[in-house]
Design a protein around this nucleic acid. Structure first.
Length: 491
RNA sequence: CGGGACGUGGCGCAGCUUGGUAGCGCGGUUGCUUUGGGAGCAAUAGGUCGCAGGUUCAAAUCCUGUCGUCCCGACCA
């Protein structure tokens, strides 16, 4: 990896700089991911290889979320990747939404299959087919299932992590006795996603409802979390769907209620994917590379030893190892970079690009004084002469502080880049020149949304919850409404 | 799938216009000197120029096709 040269190539001092072109930002994104070894291109078009550093990041996200999913009463299970083609066609909207992007297996064992199998683009159909067999009585409900899986969607245009043909995700699927309970479930899981995003990924998100145009194919309502990236574009970071009885009717998930009636179950589904890794890259990164939130960073602390003589080397490495062990014992993910083929300066830059939240420099002078130097990735500040005693407590606190600081930074960024407008002219001006979120009274139809998208490339990201506005005038139609929507150009 | 750019040692690129048998920087290896912000010197290894056809005495270079990547558009987690 030739870091120096590439950093100099990517001279975007500010990722959101007014002079930056979209293509420069796109390049920054791709280059950063390749250089920091989060991922690599695969021999198959549109697919990617998630490298160990990227997978470690995903693993940490996954573990945090998995615990939350289990804590809210769900169980993990696994359903097959191959689904009979006929299953997909059972729900009308669903098939219309997904059929065009399905990979289809037509041959197996050297023979043409009687019925083609589709590679799951999502698992509603096969899971609900099974649910129908498992649900008989109200006592079988709620049925709360999650699966960690890969899915395939034949995308036209792909981008590392943000949109690949195959991606990893979790998909929750639940069945309930009542509409209210399913609604509550869908909203509860959206809250889980919000917690994951804000508390773990340090990315503030808007929560709200999708418009019909953006709704999941087959859902009654789609809720979402929407994040703002540092280039001013929005990213849908997760969705939670209230499916009503659409799939229950298609797959005959019926149960006998306490009153003895045969009723269709009410359902939800919800998912987040490896796209979250892309969200972290674009949501926190700067001109130096990644900035990873401590809670999910594969390496939280990197130790860079500094020495000249062999004697110094021995002393410094001994201290470094001792500190590394102490930090590890305190539950900190620490890495000692004891490579002797690189200078300290190289290592500083290397780990900064990789987004390690905190670096610890230790040299002969520090060893004499029993101190270390500590450098923060997010602010770039260095603190000298931090005592080696009580270091694990100091660093645990510092990591918490960094976690909060980068969340605050992202939150401030979002505030600064959320604009309120009243007219379509203002709308166009903000979308074109300022980027970010646009908040406005909106009472338009799906067709109006389509026209706005055509003219400005901006879409309704969500109708935020907590609408509490006096009546205003829709910026597009002029109609009176109390609803404000949030628009942006999105990934 | 349309428009544009690109594909040459591991990485970044030059060479192509005007065909003549491949070069630079970084990285790798070895040795010595270095090491508190991307080290220096020396030696050394590494490429049938994306792939397939064609033109030619001769193709990285010209022609056709194809595959892939990136950017821009239509579709989407």
């Amino acid at each position: 990896m030739e870091v120096k040269e590439n950093i100099e190539t990517d001279e975007q001092a500010d990722v959101l700089g007014e002079d930056d072109k979209d293509s420069d930002r796109a390049k920054w994104y791709t280059q950063t991911i390749l250089q920091t070894e989060l991922a690599d291109y695969s021999p198959v078009k549109g697919c990617m290889v998630i490298r160990p550093y990227g997978y470690a990041l995903w693993d940490n996200i996954k573990n945090a979320l998995d615990k939350m999913i289990k804590d809210t009463g769900h169980q993990n299970a696994y359903f097959p990747m191959l689904i009979p083609e006929s299953f997909l066609t059972k729900e009308k909207e669903h098939v219309e939404g997904f059929a065009p992007e399905c990979a289809v297996v037509t041959h197996g064992g050297g023979k043409k299959l009687d019925e083609p199998l589709i590679v799951r683009p999502t698992s509603e159909t096969i899971i609900n087919y099974m649910f129908a067999q498992w649900v008989q009585s109200w006592r079988d409900l709620p049925l709360l299932i999650n699966q960690w899986a890969n899915v395939v969607r034949w995308e036209m245009r792909t981008r590392l992590f943000l949109r690949t043909m195959e991606f990893l995700w979790q998909e929750g699927h639940t069945a309930h006795a009542t509409s209210d309970e399913a609604e509550e479930e869908a909203k509860k899981m959206l809250e889980v996603y919000r917690t994951l995003s804000e508390e773990w990924l340090a990315l503030p998100v808007l929560t709200g409802t999708k418009t019909d145009r953006e709704r999941f194919a087959g859902a009654v309502r789609t809720y979402c979390i929407e994040a703002l990236m540092r280039d001013g574009k929005a990213l849908q970071a997760g969705t939670s769907h209230f499916l009503g009885q659409n799939f229950a009717k298609a797959f005959e998930i019926k149960f006998q209620s306490q009153e003895g009636q045969l009723e269709f179950a009410w359902q939800t589904s919800w998912g987040v994917s490896t796209r979250l890794v892309g969200a972290i890259v674009l949501g926190h990164g700067d001109e130096k590379g990644l900035i990873l939130p401590p809670k999910i960073a594969p390496v939280q602390i990197v130790i860079v030893p500094i020495y000249k003589t062999d004697a110094d080397k021995t002393t410094v490495l001994e201290r470094s190892n001792a500190i590394a062990s102490e930090l590890k014992a305190a539950g900190i993910r620490v890495h000692l970079d004891d490579r002797d083929n690189h200078t300290p300066g190289f290592k500083f830059n290397h780990w900064e690009q990789k987004g390690v939240p905190v670096r610890l420099n230790i040299g002969p002078k520090d060893c004499e004084k029993n101190v270390v130097e500590i450098a923060r990735r997010d602010t770039g500040t260095k603190t000298r002469d931090v005592s080696q005693s009580g270091l694990s407590e100091y660093l645990t606190n510092l990591l918490d502080e960094v976690q909060k600081a980068i969340f605050e930074r992202a939150l401030n960024f979002r505030k600064e880049n959320t604009h309120t407008i009243d007219t379509y002219d203002q709308f166009k001006d903000v979308i074109e020149n300022k980027h970010g979120f646009v908040e406005a009274y909106f009472a338009g139809s799906s067709e109006d949304e389509g026209k706005i998208k055509e003219e400005t490339k901006a879409t309704v990201r969500c109708i935020p919850f907590n609408q509490d506005h006096p009546e205003g005038k829709c910026f597009y139609t002029g109609k009176a409404t109390k609803i404000k929507a949030v628009f942006a150009r999105a990934y």
